[in-house]
Amino acid sequence: MANNYEDSHRQDDINHCPSLEGLQILVVDDNEDSLVLTTFILESYGVQVTTATSALEALELIKNCRFDILIFDIAMPKVDGYSLIRKVRQMLTLQKQHTPAIALTALTSEDSYNLAFLSGFQGYIHKPVEASVLITEITKLLGFSQEGNGE
């Protein structure tokens, strides 16, 4: 019974959600389970997802492809999400591009939240990711990037 209830609410979410069909989103996470879950959620909304498991892999993808939104895990080995978004912001500024970015993290402190925004993220989502929260954040950022005024 719970699955039917969840399925009907999921369908309501899709019906009330602006179309995400064809969006290109890069998801970077060193945790395979989290990467699979996030990808599954996004693909169920028609998003074309590219994945990377490290910051270095992500930087290479960003050099060669354009994405509508970036979603980066914060706690990754070698290069964390804060450092990655700073590098991406420098790279995209040189290319005169701005791509909205969401921090995806298990960190819940106010310091982590503040550092994410100071580093260059426009959104912040806690793990484990919930579909409704992720989709709401994406549509908010799309409205932000399309309007250009932050509202």
Rank of each mutant, 00 (worst) to 15 (best):
P128H: 07
L84Q: 10
K87A: 14
H126V: 06
L115F: 02
V49W: 01
L84P: 11
L84S: 06
V49N: 04
Q90S: 12
S54T: 15
S83K: 14
K63S: 11
I85G: 05
L118V: 00
A116L: 06
L115R: 13
L84W: 11
A106L: 03
E57A: 15
D111T: 15
V47F: 03
Y124C: 06
V79M: 11
H98Y: 15
L134D: 00
V49E: 04
V88L: 06
H98V: 06
Y82A: 12
P100I: 01
T99W: 03
M91N: 11
L84N: 08
R89H: 02
S112P: 02
N64P: 02
T53D: 08
K78I: 14
E110W: 03
Q97R: 14
H126G: 14
A52H: 04
D73K: 01
V79K: 13
L118D: 14
S54Q: 04
S109W: 05
M91G: 09
V88F: 05
F67I: 04
Y45H: 12
T108W: 03
H126D: 06
I69Y: 05
K127S: 05
N114A: 09
R89T: 05
T51C: 09
I85Y: 12
C65K: 13
A116S: 15
K63I: 01
I74A: 01
L92S: 02
N64R: 14
V129D: 02
I69K: 01
R89I: 00
A116G: 09
M91W: 10
R66F: 08
K87W: 09
R89M: 06
M91Q: 14
E110L: 14
Q48P: 00
A75M: 13
